[in-house]
Design a protein around this nucleic acid. Structure first.
Length: 447
RNA sequence: GGCCCUGUCGUCUAGCCCGGUCUAGGACACUUGGUUCUCAUCCAAGAAACACGGGUUCAAAUCCCGUCGGGGCUGCCA
């Protein structure tokens, strides 16, 4: 049977990095098995679902280049099916109406907790006539007297077991024509013929419920695999309160290949640190996905990103950043970049530098000496544009005045306005001569 | 509280299934030194972990039991 997987984010917020990682693993699994990967927008909660969220999800996945097969599927398009199946189950008395008020249920839950009892709602309506009377929410009738242990072979964790009698009659619909998540996912996965459900570990305790729904419907159960969670530094599930978790906020600083590489290597050990999607597909095996959650380490992401940035060609880099700088200056920048937005630190490549005159002074040298050094450097730069000749002449100047720093430091500040920069000779070569001379004049005048 | 998942350097992890080769390896971050006008790179060195307690064994990070820790779920959200 052909492998079919999906991710089913709810459009109630931006695409979370955790969902992106799940998307990656689903995608890798699909590609590895020559299967298909789908995107389904799980918009069963009409109150909270938004069009913007859906657009964000699509934008993020497109940026990451995790392409899904077929059109985007929406749960809302499947509502008639939910109703049809809910009615079928109602007739079979596998599902019933619960007429308890929300307040009653809350009180029940609270008293159970105090009595150290498992939290569950075993509804007496399922045994009475009331269970057939419409109104109230729809629940799956779960036999609380059964001593059955619901078991599934999780592809990353091995056998996982839950006692059925701890579940209670959980809800499947707000009403007969308004299915809730648990029911909708199962029906959607059935309709899409999903063979493997690879999702976050936060769904592991929902799995027995889903299994019960598959069984009530008399349909075969897919293979499950629960992926570890992405953790915040405090080891709790990474969420908005820990800062940016939306994939789209990474767009301004990171290369999609870098984020993907990072996310992939976070919960899986590949043969090397840096690798392409294709190489990941090659090595990927579901059973080797890690079991425990991993803390999102920005330092590591930055390092991976820096590696990808320095591999960019000049053309790629320029079109990515929109910078108009000579090709020869590109490596100067990419070699020092962890995040794309940090190109602002190299603004002297396209605009006049601004700085305080004190910055021109090398260590404890005198302003007159600095001025003199700049004047000498200016003469050299006037004479030739050849990088090697310039370097040689500046070195000789340094030797003459017995202090290389006194030559290079003021020159760098004059052309870049910064105390940290690439070799001034390289920067000079990247700029045009008139600008360089003008900048040196400005510096001399400051002294 | 109940249920489930999980536990090797600060972080991501290798090793664990099939005990000895582990004085526990790698990567990121960090520290120091070298190169050097500064930064980055590069090179060299360094600090840094088997959660704890029992047991099995000639031998345990690896097997068994218990404890503790962390997380998730516990919704008429997904």
């Amino acid at each position: 049977m052909k492998v079919k997987v999906r991710i089913a984010p709810s459009p109630t917020g931006n695409l979370h990095v955790g969902t992106a990682q799940a998307a990656l693993y689903n995608w890798l699994f699909a590609k590895k098995n020559k299967g298909e990967f789908y995107l389904r927008i799980e918009d069963t909660d009409k109150e909270r679902s938004t069009k913007e969220s859906e657009e964000n999800i699509i934008e993020a996945l497109t940026w990451l280049d995790l392409r899904w097969d077929g059109p985007v599927v929406h749960s809302t398009d499947n509502q008639a099916r939910y109703r049809e199946l809910l009615e079928k189950l109602l007739n079979e008395k596998k599902v019933f109406y619960c007429h308890h008020a929300q307040g009653e249920l809350e009180a029940e839950r609270k008293s159970q907790e105090m009595a150290k009892l498992p939290p569950r709602h075993v509804c007496e309506h399922k045994y009475s006539e009331r269970g057939g009377e419409s109104g109230g929410i729809v629940r799956l009738a779960v036999n609380e007297k059964s001593d059955r242990v619901i078991t599934f072979e999780d592809q990353v964790r091995g056998r996982v077991e839950f006692k059925q009698n701890l579940l209670g009659d959980f809800s499947v619909g707000r009403s007969i024509d308004d299915a809730l998540y648990h029911f909708a996912v199962v029906v959607d996965d059935i309709d899409m013929e999903i063979t493997h459900v690879l999702r976050g570990e936060d769904h592991i305790s929902n799995t027995p419920k889903h299994i019960l729904i598959y069984e009530a419907l008399g349909l075969s159960i897919p293979v499950f695999a629960h992926l570890p969670l992405i953790l915040a530094p405090d080891r709790s599930k990474m969420s908005k309160r820990h800062g940016d978790t939306a994939v789209t906020v990474f767009k301004k600083d990171y290369l999609p290949e870098a984020l993907l590489n990072f996310l992939g290597a976070m919960s899986y050990t590949f043969s090397k640190e840096l690798l392409t999607k294709e190489e990941m597909i090659e090595e990927f095996e579901l059973s080797k996905v890690h079991k425990s959650g991993a803390v999102f380490n920005v330092d590591k992401l930055n390092w991976i990103n820096s590696q990808y940035i320095r591999r960019l060609t000049s053309t790629e880099f320029k079109s990515l950043t929109g910078l108009k700088i000579p090709d020869s200056a590109v490596p100067l920048v990419t070699e020092r970049l962890e995040k794309l937005s940090d190109v602002k630190n190299f603004d002297y490549l396209w605009q006049e530098p601004e700085y305080e005159k004190e910055l021109l002074i090398w260590k404890d040298s005198r302003p007159e000496d600095v001025k003199n050094s700049l004047e000498e450097s200016r003469k050299i730069l006037e004479k030739t544009e050849d990088k090697e000749k310039v370097r040689k002449a500046l070195d000789e100047l340094g030797q003459k005045i017995g202090n290389r720093g006194l030559v290079y430091w003021p020159l760098r500040v004059a052309v870049t306005g910064k105390e940290k920069s690439p070799d001034p000779v390289e920067v000079v070569a990247a700029l045009n001569r008139e600008d360089v001379l003008k900048r040196i004049d400005v510096a001399i005048n400051k002294l």
